[in-house]
Nucleic acid binder design. Sequence first.
DNA 1: GACGAGTCTGACCGATCGGTCAAGGTCTGA
DNA 2: TCAGACCTTGACCGATCGGTCAGACTCGTC
Lengths: 190, 190
Amino acid sequence: MLDGMARPMPETHGDILAAATRRFAATGYRGTSLQDIAREVGCSKATVLYHFANKEALLVELMARPLEVLAELDARLAVLDGAAAQWAAAEGFVDLAVRFRREIAVLRGEFPELLTQPAFAHVQRISERLLDALAGDCAGPAGRIAALVVLAGVPEACAEFVDLPDEELRPALLSIARRALVPTDPSTHE
Amino acid sequence: MLDGMARPMPETHGDILAAATRRFAATGYRGTSLQDIAREVGCSKATVLYHFANKEALLVELMARPLEVLAELDARLAVLDGAAAQWAAAEGFVDLAVRFRREIAVLRGEFPELLTQPAFAHVQRISERLLDALAGDCAGPAGRIAALVVLAGVPEACAEFVDLPDEELRPALLSIARRALVPTDPSTHE
DNA sequence: GACGAGTCTGACCGATCGGTCAAGGTCTGA
DNA sequence: TCAGACCTTGACCGATCGGTCAGACTCGTC
C-alpha cells in the first residue's frame, strides 16, 4: 500500500471491472461513484481512471459482450416474422437475460437514460425491433403491452434470482414469457 | 418575476408537486435536481424548499395516496389465502398500477434504494407479502419468479403507456398477469 | 547504473448537489 | 398606518461528483 506497486498486478483492470459490476448492480450506475468502486477494489480513484478513460468506459466495457449477443439475436430475428419471430425472440431474450443477468442488473431502471449515451445509440433501435418481434402481429396495443411486461419483468426477475442456477431459471422464465405473450394474430398470417 | 409575489399563488405547492412528478418520472429521483424542478415550475430552488422541507418530502407527499391504496390492498389480502389471494392480488395490483401509473413511474429502477429511506420502511414488508400472494402456493421457485416478472413488468408497462386510457390498459394487463402467474398448487389446498 | 515503460497515488480542479439564511416584497386585518 | 403572516429570492455553505496531473515507485533491458 505504501509502495507504488505492491503486486505484479496485471489483473487490476479485471478487478476494477468486477467491482464496478457489483456496485452498479447494487446501487445503480448513477448511484455509484468512482470512489465507491475504488474502495471496493482497494485502490485509489485515480487508479480506476488510469485503467478506464472515464466512468462511461466502465459501463461500455461491462456491457460489450451482452450487447454483442443482443446484436446476434437481432440479426437472427431479422430474417423471421410472425409467430416464428415471436417465438425466437422470446427464447433468445430469455437466454440473453439469464446468461448475462449480472451485467443486466446494472441497467435496472436507468435503461432509458443510459441508452441516450452515444455509445449505446444502436441499442435503442435493436430493443425496439425486439419489442416488435415479441409483440407479434396482434392488432391493438395488447401485444405491445404484453411484450413490454416481458421485456421489463424478465431482466428484473433475473437480477433478483442471481444465485439460482441457469438450468432452473431459464425454463421457468421461458414458460412465463410464452404464457404472457399474446399469440400472433392468425388472420394476418395464414 | 421581479416582485416578491407576482400571482395570488396559493397553488404553488401543487404546481411544484406536479412538476416534480413529471421530472422524477422522466429522469428518476436521483437524476432530478431541485434546480430542475424549480426551472420547470418557473421559480427559484429556494421556493421549492420553502414549500417542502427537503427533496425526500417531495417524494413522500407524491407517493402518499398510492401507498395508502397499497396498504388497503394489503389489508384485503391478509384475510385470504391460496388461489383466492393470488387472484385478488393480481387484480388489486394491476388496478393500483394503472390508477397511479404516473406516480409509480417515479420509482422506476430506484425502487429498492428508495425503500431503504425510513419514510418507506413499511412498504418493504407490504411488497414482500404482495409477492407471496402473487406467487401462490406453488412449490419451487417458479411461482415466485412469475410473481416477480408481473410485479416488475406491469408498472413498467404502465409507465410506458401513460396516455392509453385506463379502460384499455387495465383489462390487457390483468389478462397478461393471469396468464403469466403459475396456478396455485391444488395439492396444498383441496 | 541508467533508462523508459507501466502502474499507482495524493492533491487538486470546476461543477453541481441538497440545503440554509437574511432580506425584501405582498397581502390582510386591526 | 402599521404589524405580522405569508411568499419569494439571490447569495451562500459544505459535501461530493467526475476528472486531471505531476510525481513516485517497480520493473525489464541495455
